[in-house]
């Protein structure tokens, strides 16, 4: 094996240094742009008096940091009975799933407002395994996990350190339904997805099981999930 030259090492070091400096500059600029990190100004002097009033608005907000799960197109190897695609762990039995995209990230939902919310899901279009996939024993399942446990990158705020939704999750897969259900909190005023950055996110994973005899319709079949974030008004 050819040894790495000193020049190459120096070049790599310089490149690393460049990235570090660029990153620092970008970070400092972003920090200065935030409230609480104002630009340095001279001390102001004034004797005028006035009345200050402030109204804090309630911001109900939700961000989906992974908007789509697109397994792409492919087929099941004829030597297998099925191909299982799980957005949590990726393709199960790579030899059985031919051509499909290996997805390892679920929908990452985050409360980006300033008020606690509850979250439920609904599904439109092909919301059963039979209509989305077809064939013998297809599967179209959903589960949800705290991001403090899933540790999926991409939260707008920092990665959660505490389980959101009071730690109440469904970590085993269940069938998707069109009516959906509450994932976090409930309809009776339990708004348990906190707005605190340390516990404001969770991951919704999807599992598709495609049997070898799934019909080929010649086009992509899809389902659209609606995630509803609800707060007190």
């Amino acid at each position: 094996m050819k040894e790495i030259s000193n020049k190459a090492i120096v070049f790599l070091l310089l490149f690393t240094l460049l990235i570090t400096i660029s990153g620092t500059i970008v970070s400092i600029n972003k920090l200065l742009g935030l409230e609480g990190y104002p630009s340095i100004t001279g001390a102001g002097t004034s004797n005028a008096t006035g009345t200050a009033s402030v109204t804090i608005s309630a911001n109900t907000a939700i961000t989906n940091n992974v908007a789509t799960i697109n397994f792409g197109s492919g087929y099941v190897n004829s030597t297998c009975t099925q191909c299982r695609m799980d957005s949590d762990v990726g393709l199960s039995g790579v030899n059985c799933c031919i051509g499909f995209t290996n997805i390892t990230s679920g929908f990452l939902l985050e409360n980006t407002g300033n008020i606690n919310v509850s979250v439920n899901y609904e599904c439109a279009f092909n919301c059963t395994a039979a209509t989305l996939i077809g064939g013998t024993k297809p599967g179209f399942e959903i589960k949800w996990t705290a991001n403090s446990a899933a540790a999926q990158a991409g939260e707008v705020g920092s990665l959660d350190s505490t389980a959101s939704c009071e730690g109440k999750f469904n970590a085993t897969y269940e069938n998707v339904t069109a009516a959906g259900k509450f994932i976090c909190g409930n309809a009776s005023g339990n708004y348990s997805l906190d707005f605190n950055n340390a516990l404001d996110a969770f991951v919704v994973d999807i599992n598709l099981t495609i049997p070898v005899d799934a019909p080929n319709t010649g086009g992509a079949r899809s389902a659209v999930f609606t995630f509803n974030a609800t707060s007190t008004g």
């Binding site: 939700i62 989906n64 992509a220 995630f227 707060s231």
Partner: peptide
């Protein structure tokens, strides 16, 4: 997309 999403916000 195979599995797409929509978002909705509600105030009770």
């Amino acid at each position: 997309n195979t599995l797409g999403t929509k978002l909705s916000v509600n105030k009770n």
